[in-house]
Amino acid sequence: MAMYLVAGTQSANGKQNFVNVMKMSELQEMEEERSDDEDIIDEEPELIMEQIKHNGVVNRIRCAHIPGRELVSTWSDTGKVCIWDISHQFIQLDNKDNQKMTETSTNHKPLYTFTGHQTEGFAMDWSRTTHGRLLTGDCRKNIHLWNPTDDGSWQIDQRPFSSHTNSVEDLQWSPNEPTVFASCSVDKTIKVWDIRAAPSKACMLTTNAHVTDVNVISWNRNEPLLVSGGDDGIVKIWDLRRFKTGEAVAVFKHHTDAITSVEWLATDNSVFAASGSDNQISIWDLAVEKDDEEKGNSVDVPPQLLFIHMGQKDIKEIHWHSQLPGVVISTGEDGFNIFKTISV
C-alpha cells in the first residue's frame, strides 16, 4: 500500500523550512497487530520525498486538486501566503527508485504570493465546489477571499471579512454551497458568511460557541452540521438549522487539554475524529446510544466514544484518508502516525 502526504517541516537546526511532498509505501500492519496465522512480511515501510525550500515557518498547509495541477497553499509566520504547484514533485516521486528516506531539495518558486494580511495567520481552506477559490484568515481578525483568474493567477479582494474581534483560527467552506463559509475565532464565536454580500455585510449568523478560544471547526459533507473544538477541551456539534439558538446539539468532554483538530469522516455522516494537546486522538460516532445494560454502569464514558489513540506527542492535525476507508493520518512533534481502527 502507498500513500502521498504533504506537510511543512523545519530542519533539525531550525534554520531552514520546507514544504515536503512525500510518498509512503510498503505500509503494513504493525507486527503485534497481526494474527498468529498471518505471514510476516519482510518489507519495511519506505519513505521518499521531494523538499521545497520555504521562506519562514509553515504555520499551516492545505492541498487542492485543480484540473491539470496539484496545488498547495502555505501560511508563513512571515505574514505571507504562498501557492505552490507541486505537480512536478509528484511525478518525481513516482519516477524515483524506492529507497528509504531519500530526499531532494529544490529552490522551487511559488506560483503566487500574497502579503496583504501584513501579519501571520493559521486559518485557510480551499473550496470543494469552485476550483481554485481560497480563503485565508489572520491573527488580526481579517479574512480574505481569493478568486482564480483565467490566466492561472488569483484576484484577492482587498476588503476583508472582519466581523470577528480577535484572531481567526480556522475556516471551512460549505461542502455544498459555493458562496458560504464558516469561521471560528479567539473571540469565542463561530460565524457563517455569504460572499455574495459585501464583506461588511457578509456575516449572516453568529453564535457564542465556547467559553474559551474556538480553535478548529469541520463542516459535515452531507448534513447541516459543524463540529467545533476549543481551548476548553470540549467538542461541540452544531446543527445549522438551530444555529441562532446558540445551543449545541451535542457536547463532549473527554480531552483534558485544548482541542487541536477535528474532522468528519466523509463516508459516514455521524463519525468524526478529534485531537488534543493531551496527546490523544478520539474517534466518535453520534449514532451510538447507551443501551440498557450500560445505563447501570458507573464508568462515565460517553457511549459515542469509539476509540482512543495515544502515544504521539503534541498532536497538531488529524485527517481521514480520502481513499482508504477508516485510515487516519496525524501529525505531531515526533512525526506522523498512520493507523486504522476496527471501529469504522
Rank of each mutant, 00 (worst) to 15 (best):
M3Y: 07
Q10S: 13
K15W: 02
K15R: 14
Q16P: 02
N17D: 13
E32N: 09
I40E: 15
D42C: 07
I48K: 05
V58G: 03
N59A: 09
C63E: 12
A64P: 01
H65E: 11
T74I: 15
T74F: 05
D77Y: 09
G79H: 08
I86Y: 02
S87Q: 06
Q89L: 00
I91N: 08
Q92I: 01
Q92N: 11
L93C: 03
K96W: 09
D97E: 10
T102Q: 13
T106A: 11
H108V: 06
Y112V: 06
H117T: 12
G121Y: 00
S127V: 00
R128D: 03
G132R: 01
R133Y: 05
N142K: 12
N142S: 11
N147A: 09
D150C: 08
S153E: 12
D157T: 13
S162Q: 15
T165L: 14
N176F: 10
P178K: 15
T179V: 08
F181E: 02
S183C: 08
K188M: 13
W193N: 04
D194Q: 12
A197I: 06
A198N: 14
T206P: 08
A209I: 07
N220F: 07
G233N: 07
V235F: 06
K236D: 03
D239H: 03
G246V: 08
E247L: 14
A250H: 08
K253C: 10
D257R: 11
I259W: 09
I259D: 07
W264S: 03
W264H: 02
T267M: 10
T267L: 13
G276N: 04
I283Q: 07
D292A: 08
M310F: 04
M310I: 08
Q312F: 00
K313C: 09
H319A: 12
Q323P: 01
P325V: 03
V327N: 00
V328R: 01
T331L: 11
S343H: 06
S343C: 03
